[in-house]
Nucleic acid binder design. Structure first.
Ligand SMILES: [Zn+2]
Length: 264
DNA sequence: GTTTTGCCCTGTGCGC
DNA sequence: TGCGCACAGGGCAAAA
């Protein structure tokens, strides 16, 4: 589910709902969904939330933090119902936080707060759009590789937060062929793509994320970006710029949509 | 070193 | 209606 706009939307809701709450108990229904010693969190209050790329962090007031990755089908629900795909239940002094995950790819783990930045995944994350990814850094990153540009902007070690939906939409918006070797983009095109990445992520945030499949917000409502997809999931439909037929193929194992007429 | 492939899981939708 | 296959917001390890 989650790319930067979805995880950030979740974080914003959790920040309000969880701050100051005390964790009373953690019920682990799926062993592989939870790593570390849950006892470190019991009886501890929640200080706040952070986000690193697609990783969500809940800081506790005893020097420990919960790291959460939702992967493709993870959901975090405040006071939600327990269901078939509920993997972890975090009971609070008021209400509870439910972690659902149909495919069981996601995880929650406990780590020392001061070691969060050194986490094996988080420490490798590249600069983040709308935060510390400048145009200069973006141009530098693209210039260093001949890999297809779509692969590069989805590579979390190069740029953090962009996943398959927003990569597809940004490339269409910038009129860039997803297969084009990154270092072959000229300066003007790099600029267009940089702006396009920021534009689609902002749109995702504005609409509260994309509920194309499993994503829902902690309050149980859906995002709306799926109603504003530029090209993602629109195989065979007309391109809204030129009317040409949108094509789909696989790049790096991921569904890739593009308009052969607009994207060069 | 880099880049690709397969895999982790479960469910849904489509073609036959 | 039933069955098998392809595919799904991600990331990792092993292989090439
Ligand atoms: Zn077009």
């Amino acid at each position: 589910m989650p790319e930067l706009p979805e995880v950030e939307t979740i974080r914003l809701q959790l920040e309000r709902a969880l701050k100051g709450r005390k964790i009373q108990d953690i019920k682990i229904l799926s062993v592989k969904s939870f790593g570390g010693d849950k006892k470190k969190a019991l009886g501890i209050r929640i200080l706040g939330t952070r986000r690193f790329g697609k990783v969500l962090v809940i800081d506790l007031n005893n020097g420990y933090s919960l790291l959460i990755h939702l992967k493709l089908t993870g959901q975090l629900l405040v006071d939600g119902e327990v269901g078939l795909h509920t993997r972890v239940i975090i009971k609070l002094d008021k209400g509870r936080l439910i972690f659902n995950d149909l495919r069981n790819f996601g995880w929650i783990k406990i780590a020392k707060s001061e070691e969060v930045a050194a986490d094996r995944l988080i420490s490798k994350l590249g600069p983040e759009p709308l935060k510390d990814l400048t145009m200069v850094k973006f141009r530098d990153i693209l210039s260093k590789t001949a890999r297809p540009v779509k692969i590069v902007i989805m590579d979390q070690e190069k740029i953090s937060g962009v996943g398959n939906i927003y990569a597809n939409d940004a490339l269409w918006l910038a009129r860039v062929d997803p297969r084009k070797p990154a270092r072959q983009l000229d300066g003007e095109t790099v600029g267009r793509l940089y702006k396009a990445v920021l534009t689609v992520l902002k749109a995702g945030l504005k609409f509260g994320g994309a509920s194309d499949q499993h994503y829902i917000k902690p309050d149980g409502t859906k995002g709306e970006y799926q109603d504003h997809f530029l090209i993602y999931g629109r195989e065979g439909k007309p391109c809204t710029k030129c009317g040409g037929k949108i094509q789909k193929f696989f790049l790096g194992g991921r569904g890739t949509y593009f308009c052969p007429n607009c994207q060069k």
